[in-house]
Design a protein around this nucleic acid. Structure first.
Lengths: 200, 200, 200, 200
DNA sequence: AATGAATGAGGTTTCATTCAT
DNA sequence: TATGAATGAAACCTCATTCAT
């Protein structure tokens, strides 16, 4: 019974994910959700207070899900820090490219939805950026990463990834995840110039 | 007389820009727009067919406006290609950071609005990416830019900028445009590693 | 429960009949309907897709209702065919004159409403005329009815009835249904001339 | 100049006739009319007070136009009264079948429009029926027409014609005007029975 | 007389949410 | 818990009419 209840909630969230991803928040009606879920109208309101709430909960789930692929960089590991970072980025990309509804909700439909949604996004990015900045600071301390404002470096890195994913959603770009990550990583590590102004 | 008419349309577009930026497309009603513009309901429909259309027109204007700050890179100029690129990026950032409503509409509210909006965005990004890719290819031919898929490099570059601007909108980051561009440019040109893997 | 639901739909149709009859299709607003029915706005749209649809459904009902008074002429009956026909005509007239809203909708407000309405009317009249023509053909075969195009004869017969009803609606004429039918029947059967050109 | 003004008014009435005939009163907008007439919006209101008025004026014109084909029956003429009546009916039918927009407005769109329109129609029919009733009374006095209520006989006669015309508009019937009139006249004069009950 | 931009009342329809069963 | 009929605020859009030029 408890599990049945759980199933209902999960089922509604799952259905909502796909609908929101496909049509966006506003174009998705409660009717769409309950029809897809095979549930009565009133039942929906037994599990969620309102339409906005199920979107919020869904977003929370997606955030957790994305963050869950992260792993701590181990400086002492034989793999090498850059390789670990590349593996991390590849993990995110694989996650998001194999779960496109998730990606569409995160990159398209959660953006600018309302103040509450912006807060949620901000909180999420704060967490993510906190980790990245920490990694960069550590890298700088270890002499691996060039000096510079960690926050801007972090934004640059994440921006590369997000934009690549977004262009894939828009259908502009068609690259395999691994190709994508490899190239991005190359730009991120070495930059785009053949002969950088240099420290000579 | 002609100018009065022009003013009405412009005035509606201007008012719409600010409202859409502030509240988003869906939360902005025709009533909001006509109240802010001090215009009767019917007048709105003399200038635009419906709410969706004014948003589309507005988007077109913003696209033109953004693109208008671009200038062609002159390889023969004494300024040097990288410096010109940095100037270009700075131009975009200044444009967008001094016109935040525009930025919010472009980065928040036009994203994932509907299929038509996505097409519009795609067309815009196709143009932008075309130019950037061309610049990168040229740079590679000139031996300035490292080899690599121009499209991914282009995406990375634009992604850095867009994400930086977006984080400023979210209020996560507070950096001056020039600082921002300088750091981004550093990452873009040299990468983030102190000692890149090298070309050995 | 089922009956309650049924009641709502019926109630809306009933209220709509009277309003449409009184004011016509265009002058009757949804607000008029729901106020008269004592129902919320949304409730209307639970039962009908839009204003045009309830009118269409109403028309269907009226058609069935009118047609339901028809009965097949029995040639072998002792009553005699002409008497049966007169009884049939009297049935229609009584139906329509004791249900004036129905008559007004059929003869005033469904006429020329739009293409869809014209199709509906045409289909109705096709059915009705089919029956009348059949009766006339049969009558001709039996040697009761004079030769002549059944379709024109049918039109003449129905036209007499319709115009009489319509003039009653307009308030031009005040005759009892039975008087009316008797006179019409006389004209229909014998014509208006005292000494017809004749078969002498 | 006076003639130009006249032309404008005529032109608007003419355009309105065709539009009202095609689409009906409500589906025809002032925009439709002024576009078709090639006239500015304000100009329309220089010639007519409002939309309802132009329809009323148009209706008046149509009434006059229809009535104008009537001619007085001459009892002393060598042609014979029945022949004259048939010629009268044929005149009406030809008029209406060669001017279908007129017919559609009269039979479809003026019907049940509003109270004012009904009054106008009633007044028109009162005039028409007055003449027909007079003719019938005269015919009865002359021993040509069978006894019976002139009003019902008149209604029957006009009903036959109107319904025939209406079915032609609906597209149900395809007969030439002369065929039509001949058959109707036959029914009207002799009735539909081969052996009328007789006066025994 | 001619113009056409401006008006705003009024209509239709949608859809998130409630609540009695 | 599950149901789904009922609700009504709120949105969009139309179009006859006005009036300053």
């Amino acid at each position: 019974m408890a599990s049945k209840t759980l199933d209902r909630r999960e089922s509604l969230l799952d259905v909502a994910l796909h609908l929101f991803a496909e049509k966006g928040y506003h174009a998705t009606s409660i009717s769409d959700i309950i029809e897809s879920a095979g549930v009565a109208r009133g039942t929906f309101y037994n599990y969620f207070e309102n339409k906005r709430q199920i979107f919020g909960r869904l977003l929370d789930n997606l955030f957790s899900d994305v963050v869950s692929v992260a792993f701590p960089i181990d400086v002492l590991s034989g793999e090498g820090v850059p390789a670990q970072v590349q593996r991390l980025m590849a993990g995110f990309c694989r996650k998001l490219l194999t779960n496109l509804p998730m990606t569409r909700v995160l990159l398209e439909h959660a953006v600018g939805l309302d103040d509450e949604g912006n807060e949620q996004l901000k909180a999420f990015y704060d967490r993510v950026y906190g980790r990245i900045r920490k990694a960069i600071s550590d890298g700088q301390a270890l002499g691996i990463v060039r000096p510079g404002q960690p926050s801007v470096i972090a934004t640059s890195l994440l921006g590369m990834l997000k934009e690549s994913l977004y262009q894939q959603i828009l259908g502009t770009s068609r690259v395999t995840p691994d190709e994508m990550v490899e190239e991005i990583f190359a730009v991120a590590t070495c930059g785009i110039l053949l002969n950088p102004p240099g420290e000579a």
